[in-house]
């Protein structure tokens, strides 16, 4: 890898022509999987994730059930065709780790005690990958959970930030993810002002990190509004099919 040859910033613009604090196009489709209790497709530019939520439903075998609260299962997976070099299908170390990270974020955003002995199954499938895949999956799962009627504190809003050539930017694409010097994944609940997901790769100074965090909170509002708008449009339309 020749890092020197890749120019991430040119005349203050990023490799895909965005400003430093500009988010890629957000596209949302809801109710795409009729058999699921809730489903959504969420995309940040070229990164597309599909999520389906089933439940709260019965958990088998019974010894896994918890008396007082629900169990959350999350499966994050990248399709073999989602990346430019084929990814081996199936579970690998990375997808197990990210499933766990997403599960922690979701567990902290929903009222588990309302669903004793049940399981809430969340599946996220990345079908096209161009950076920020875990965050795209989190946004998709958030919308699917809302449609499935699960009690939650707020819609979960996710966004990434990073450092490229000493500048803090939001919503990284694949190129910036690979060649930037740091990246942060961030999941946030606006209603309770809680951070449910925070991961960092690379190195940032304290001031840079705090600035990134404030920028993330500010820009996450855009994603939040998009999520709410999509849900509203979906629910206010009659369905004749």
């Amino acid at each position: 890898m020749k890092k020197e040859n890749i120019k991430l910033l040119e005349n203050g613009k990023r490799s895909d022509g965005r400003n430093l604090d500009e988010i890629r196009n957000i596209n949302i489709e809801l109710g795409i999987i009729p058999i699921a209790n809730g489903s959504a497709k969420f995309s940040f530019g070229n990164t597309v994730a599909i999520a389906a939520v089933y439940g709260a439903r019965s958990l088998q075998p019974k010894f896994l059930q918890e008396d007082e609260k629900a169990v959350v299962r999350v499966r994050y997976n990248m399709a073999p065709f989602s990346t430019d070099t084929r990814k081996n299908p199936g579970i690998d170390r990375r997808s197990i780790e990210l499933s766990k990270v997403l599960r922690d974020a979701i567990e902290n955003s929903i009222f588990l005690e309302e669903y004793p002995r049940a399981v809430i199954d969340c599946y996220a499938e990345v079908i096209s990958s161009d950076g920020s895949t875990r965050i795209t999956s989190l946004n998709a799962i958030s919308l699917a959970l809302a449609l499935a009627g699960i009690s939650m504190k707020d819609l979960i809003v996710g966004l990434t930030a990073g450092k490229i050539e000493d500048k803090i930017v939001v919503d990284l694409n694949q190129l910036e993810d690979n060649y930037g010097s740091a990246d942060i994944s961030f999941g946030y609940l606006f209603a309770t002002d809680e951070i449910v997901l925070l991961q960092m790769d690379g190195e940032l100074k304290k001031e840079e990190f705090l600035y990134a965090l404030s920028l993330l909170k500010e820009k996450a509002k855009v994603v939040y509004e998009k999520q709410k708008e999509a849900l509203r449009n979906y629910l206010e339309k009659e369905k004749y099919d």
Binding site: A146, S151, K228, L231, R232, E236, K237
Partner: peptide
């Protein structure tokens, strides 16, 4: 478009 039965409220709204 038909009229809604009430006002739609989303999670996280006051």
């Amino acid at each position: 478009m038909a009229e809604l039965y009430g006002k739609i409220v989303l999670p996280g709204e006051e």
